[in-house]
Amino acid sequence: MTSTEFETAAPDPIVYLDRVAATDLGRSYKGHMLDVLDIRPGQTVLDLGCGPGTDLTSLAQAVTGTGTVIGVDHDPTAVETARARAADRQTVTVRLGDIHDLPLPDHAADRARTDRVLQHVTDPAQALREFHRVLRPGGRLVMGEPDWDTLTVDHPDSDLSRAYTQYVTDKVVRNARIGRQLPRLAAEAGFAVPAVIPITSVFRDAREADKILGLERTAQRAVAAGHFDQEAARRWLDHLSTGPFLAAVTLYIVVAESYPGRSRRAVAADPATTAGRH
């Protein structure tokens, strides 16, 4: 089943995160997230699930020398890497911590972001309650999360592609539909949600798509789990590697705000908080 076109082993997590950030897709959606975060000089900004510090420099530039950027991640290796990368930024600190129980006091920050993190955590709702706790009244949270149920891969046998997407959604990613769920979960945590921005990534090059989607290594896991048989997986991958290629998946950027004087129940009951508008 192995194809010379695709990766068969998962890359190192830090290598993978750097790889995504370096793509046109990564630069585009991260830039959009930064724009809607609307950081002002002198503010305190949190990067929750900061990984190896990929976005700390852009946040530090936005707060200027008068602000503060705090990165938080649960992975000691990622924290060590982020600290090394931000060593020349006096306004940046990186802390080891769990986003379900942030090592921060109440109302500590003006802005917060999280980027493709909630799809992996144990309890997204608890994480959002923590985000609400540490933001000041009037603070803004921007989240970017994919909805893997929107993954489409063109193939003459649509049942094979459908089986692949179902496997990714049901077995590979812990919270695979988090993108569509974020507005509701944010409202339930006490936020207003003034904007939901869908960004659909379209891949026309199979090798470039594989660097993000892991087509072959995921198909191998699907075979081992009984979702594909070996022959079906071979036919699917052979076509993807040789024929015209198209795949797409939607990522949602969700803007959430912590308004003073609004209870969680009141925010959740307000229809305006759950309607995405630009």
Rank of each mutant, 00 (worst) to 15 (best):
V168D: 07
T169R: 13
T169I: 00
D170R: 12
D170Q: 10
D170L: 11
D170N: 10
D170K: 10
K171L: 01
V172F: 15
V172R: 15
V173Q: 14
V173R: 13
N175A: 03
N175M: 02
N175T: 01
A176H: 10
R177M: 01
R177V: 05
I178H: 12
G179A: 04
G179K: 09
R180P: 06
Q181R: 10
L182Q: 08
L182V: 05
P183K: 02
P183H: 06
L185E: 14
L185H: 13
A186K: 04
E188M: 04
E188A: 14
E188L: 10
A189R: 09
A189M: 12
A189V: 01
F191K: 09
V193M: 12
V193R: 10
P194A: 02
A195I: 00
V196K: 08
P198Q: 04
I199G: 13
I199Y: 15
T200P: 07
T200Q: 15
T200D: 10
T200K: 14
S201I: 00
S201V: 00
V202H: 15
V202K: 09
F203V: 00
R204L: 12
R204D: 11
D205P: 03
D205Y: 08
A206K: 04
A206M: 07
A206L: 08
R207V: 01
R207M: 08
E208V: 00
A209G: 06
D210E: 10
D210N: 05
K211N: 12
K211W: 07
L213I: 02
L213T: 01
G214Y: 06
L215Y: 09
E216K: 04
E216G: 04
R217D: 09
R217W: 13
T218G: 04
T218H: 04
A219G: 10
Q220E: 07
Q220W: 09
R221D: 13
R221C: 01
R221S: 14
A222Y: 11
A222P: 05
A222C: 08
V223C: 11
A224M: 02
A225L: 04
A225Y: 14
G226A: 06
H227I: 00
H227Q: 12
H227C: 03
F228M: 04
F228N: 07
F228S: 09
Q230F: 06
Q230R: 14
A233E: 07
A233Q: 05
R234C: 07
R235N: 09
W236D: 05
W236P: 03
W236E: 03
H239W: 15
H239F: 15
H239A: 02
L240A: 08
L240H: 12
L240E: 11
